[in-house]
Amino acid sequence: MSGGIPLDALDFFEELAAENTRTWWQANRARWEESVREPMEWLVEALAHEFGEAHLYRPQRDVRFAKDKSPYKDHQGALAATVPGVGFYVQVSADGLMTGGGFYPTGPDQTPRYRAAVDAPASGTALQQVVDRLVADGFELGGETVATRPRGVAADHPRLELMRHKHLVASRRHGAPAWLDTPEAVEQVRADWRAVRPLVDWLTEHVGATQVPRRR
């Protein structure tokens, strides 16, 4: 594999959305391997020297507690983690390519540490500057938030919007540009990951890995 992400990857997920069944998946598994998994593996391997090894998420959904019992995800994502739950992300779906970085909690202690660091003047101001630059550069700030504000946080807190986040990501949606199925794709993802590195570095330092043991 020496190209980018084939356009058939987008078609694959569009067709999967119309018939998300094990029967359809098994009939198209070889296509998933060729158009989705292998190109994504190539892309993240090309970036591993600079950003570390990335993990491709499994295509199956965990439907044990979900109302939606569709067995397969409508996208393929990969994360180059600095610590569990924090890192650089890339995804392909029917909507095209998305890149970004941030954190998604893997334990209950990470969001409180994040908010404490946002609350602290020095680290909080530093994060505000990082996200302001990313938004100005065309990234979208996302992540689950509380509806109003966390308990105990003043309504006039200077970084209230950041305090509202339970997790924080910055992403850029590329869609299906002309370079998607060419080697230029890796350079575009590299540029985006370099742009979000200050955010990932801040989260790695101030949020870090969960210290809560996993339940057995």
Score class of each variant (00 low, 15 high):
125 T>V: 09
125 T>W: 08
126 A>D: 14
127 L>S: 02
128 Q>S: 13
129 Q>N: 13
129 Q>P: 04
129 Q>E: 15
130 V>R: 11
131 V>M: 01
132 D>G: 13
133 R>V: 10
135 V>D: 15
135 V>W: 14
136 A>K: 15
136 A>P: 03
136 A>N: 13
137 D>G: 09
137 D>K: 11
137 D>E: 14
138 G>C: 08
138 G>V: 11
139 F>M: 06
139 F>T: 04
140 E>F: 06
140 E>V: 11
140 E>N: 10
140 E>Y: 08
141 L>R: 15
141 L>D: 02
143 G>C: 12
144 E>C: 06
144 E>V: 10
145 T>A: 12
145 T>R: 15
145 T>Q: 15
147 A>R: 14
147 A>M: 10
148 T>K: 15
148 T>S: 15
148 T>L: 12
149 R>H: 12
149 R>M: 08
150 P>D: 13
150 P>Y: 13
150 P>L: 10
150 P>A: 13
151 R>Y: 06
151 R>D: 12
154 A>H: 10
154 A>F: 09
155 A>D: 13
155 A>M: 09
155 A>F: 07
156 D>S: 14
156 D>M: 08
156 D>G: 08
157 H>I: 11
158 P>K: 12
158 P>G: 11
161 E>F: 09
162 L>S: 04
162 L>Y: 07
164 R>G: 12
166 K>Q: 15
166 K>N: 14
166 K>H: 14
166 K>P: 02
166 K>S: 06
167 H>Q: 15
167 H>Y: 13
167 H>D: 11
169 V>A: 10
169 V>I: 12
170 A>G: 06
170 A>C: 04
170 A>R: 07
170 A>E: 01
171 S>V: 15
172 R>S: 05
172 R>D: 01
173 R>W: 09
173 R>E: 13
173 R>C: 08
174 H>D: 07
174 H>M: 08
175 G>K: 04
175 G>Y: 02
176 A>P: 06
177 P>E: 03
178 A>S: 13
178 A>L: 10
178 A>R: 13
178 A>P: 00
179 W>T: 06
182 T>F: 02
182 T>G: 03
182 T>Y: 04
183 P>Y: 07
184 E>D: 14
184 E>Y: 01
185 A>H: 02
186 V>D: 00
189 V>I: 03
189 V>Y: 02
189 V>Q: 02
191 A>D: 06
191 A>Y: 00
191 A>G: 10
191 A>C: 04
192 D>W: 04
193 W>G: 00
193 W>S: 02
193 W>L: 02
195 A>W: 08
196 V>E: 01
196 V>K: 03
197 R>I: 02
197 R>T: 15
197 R>E: 14
198 P>A: 03
198 P>L: 00
198 P>H: 00
198 P>K: 00
199 L>V: 06
199 L>G: 00
202 W>E: 04
203 L>K: 06
203 L>A: 03
203 L>S: 01
205 E>T: 14
206 H>N: 11
207 V>F: 04
208 G>C: 07
208 G>P: 07
209 A>L: 05
212 V>Q: 15
214 R>W: 07
214 R>Y: 09
214 R>I: 07
214 R>H: 11
